[in-house]
Design a protein around this nucleic acid. Structure first.
Lengths: 332, 332
DNA sequence: CCCCGTAATGTAACCGGTTACATTAGGTTT
DNA sequence: AAACCTAATGTAACCGGTTACATTACGGGG
């Protein structure tokens, strides 16, 4: 294996010169630079980044904790994180946690032991025990208002309210909702938006119109069943993410309930394929790309030791009307 | 920052003893072990893995190259890889390449510079220039017969043939096919299976029944259009992955063509949600989980310097009949 | 031609583990 | 009690970069 010392001796310069030639060439005379280049070429030298990282006490990598990488929304955010981290000179270590706090803890040891410089958490909750908060650089992407770490997110309450407001504006008054797990902060926020909207419109809340899902397509399939069996079905369904909305639409189809003619359905996230389904999904678009880049930038600032002036970064969402929603069918 | 020397001095033993207490405790007397434990506890010591990795000239991480992480099949494989690598003491560095060879090259420098010990490539083609083949540990998961690296895969030709055989057994003779990109080895293999099946059944190949997609849902939506506009439509559609099959079904729906009554549709991969769609997809299940674990095991064997006796590991696929296929409607 | 300031280069310590090798402790055999 | 063996421990070199600091080279002004 060719080391920097071999390069130095072949080039007839010191190791310091070689090191500088690589990391700050402006400090090296063009003559030396030339010699070093040639030697590197000849030896096929590649610097050992393990040594560099060790010396500089930086792993140049960030750990991304994802509840479930096969969730399409998360995978879009991860893609953006990875892309941007790469650009900034950092690698991305993947940590699929299956929503388990225990697994999160295991991954956290990677940053305790210096294998990663910081963490981006995608579950809307802190991965760190309070004792660790000060030592470990962490940001929460797609988190909620209550996460103790700096968070990059949208206003989930407002977004949910926007959707439900729209459904109400179409004349719907019995609006079913398929939630995520009750304890999930996103569920709480989006549910709050739902309630706000109903209240403003003077519609009484009806507990039978709530079904708990878990953000998977299967849970959408399943929860929709509840609504289909009802005597008096809702005329619209607010699903707390796109996957569940798609699942729900499959169930409606099996009951021969036409979307949007007989029931409107809305999603949340605007996953990549939401527009290709038939009917295409009315939904809230989260800026997945931007969430990823901002999360990386923010984390790196923390890693650099900067103290942030603002720890809640709220990005704008977009309300996208497609074909899964329609004014209520009037009984003439 | 507490180092191993601090621990040693607090515990009243040498650094070697501390090091051994951590990595091979059986070599240390229980008395020393005890003292070391206490000292570690007191100092909140965490070994610096950058130092360990540097010294042992191992990054204990593997690089996974993925053409597109938001492809559900890939994300399942990656999940399995990550999970298993973790179990074996390795981290996973993510490399989303957007199908670009240039980006692949960039990532490969991570293993040249020792940031990763090896590569798992998910694009069915080599990421390495021939000059690098010998230096870099690499396996190809979901590759094809022609990849120069050891490959973990299914028999794509046979799998495709199984599907088309089945369609033919249902009476279909005009079977459209939505392919992946023409240059993709999977496309070639699955197309070969399609042709074999037709030939065996004595059905003449009809070039107008082929539409080229690119494995995205959108391309399925798009390609299906071609078939819907035909004078004499095919009665079945063989799509080279599930995403395109789902896309195609959306288009068929917009043409009011019922699946499976008027047209049968098959996918490939058996992505997680394939069973929840309505109709649920008849498809080939690739053993994503096993592909991941075997890929990791194989790569680690290569990294350990073992020479493999068999470089083509062909795993069994499963043929799954669901509701998107049905015997052809006879003209009575 | 000398002096001096800046640019370029070199020397060697350092990062925090691991581990080869030397040394010591402790127990058993004769 | 001496001789001997094994287990446990300690010492210090080593991995391959980076960088503080010392030294040298070079060019312009006097």
């Amino acid at each position: 294996m060719s080391s920097i010392r071999k390069v130095a001796s072949l080039a007839g310069v010191s190791v310091a010169t070689v090191s500088r030639a690589l990391s700050s060439p402006e400090k090296v005379s063009s003559k030396s630079l030339e010699k070093v280049q040639v030697a590197i070429e000849q030896l096929h030298y590649r610097p050992n980044m393990l040594a560099r990282n060790f010396r500089s006490a930086r792993a140049y990598s960030i750990l991304v904790l994802i509840p479930d990488i096969s969730n399409p929304f998360f995978s879009e955010v991860v893609r953006s994180i990875e892309d941007h981290a790469q650009r900034r000179g950092y690698g991305v270590l993947l940590g699929d946690t299956q929503d388990s706090k225990t697994k999160e803890q295991e991954y956290i040891t990677m940053v305790e032991t210096r294998l990663a410089d910081g963490v981006i958490q995608l579950r809307p909750d802190s991965p760190l025990p309070t004792s660790e908060r000060d030592h470990i650089s962490c940001v929460n992407a797609c988190g909620s208002e209550d996460t103790p770490e700096p968070v990059i997110r949208i206003d989930n309450v407002a977004a949910a309210k926007t959707l439900v407001d729209y459904l109400i504006s179409l004349g719907h008054r019995r609006i079913g909702v398929i939630t995520g797990l009750a304890k999930n902060p996103h569920t709480k926020d989006r549910f709050a938006g739902y309630l706000q909207s109903l209240e403003e419109a003077g519609i009484e809340f009806d507990g039978s119109l709530v079904a708990e899902g878990d953000f998977t397509m299967w849970s959408g399939v399943n929860s929709a069943d509840h609504f289909c069996r009802m005597e008096q079905r809702p005329t619209a369904l607010f699903c707390m993410n796109d996957e569940m909305a798609l699942g729900a639409m499959q169930t409606l189809k099996s009951y021969n309930i036409d979307v949007p003619k007989e029931m409107s359905v809305t999603g949340f996230d605007d996953i990549k394929n939401a527009k290709y389904y038939n009917p295409s999904l009315t939904t809230i678009a989260q800026p997945a790309e931007e969430i990823g880049t901002v999360a990386v930038d923010t984390l790196l600032r923390i890693i650099e030791g900067e103290t942030l002036s603002e720890t809640q970064i709220v990005l704008p969402f977009e309300f996208i009307v497609r074909n899964s929603t329609r004014p209520i069918k009037r009984f003439v």
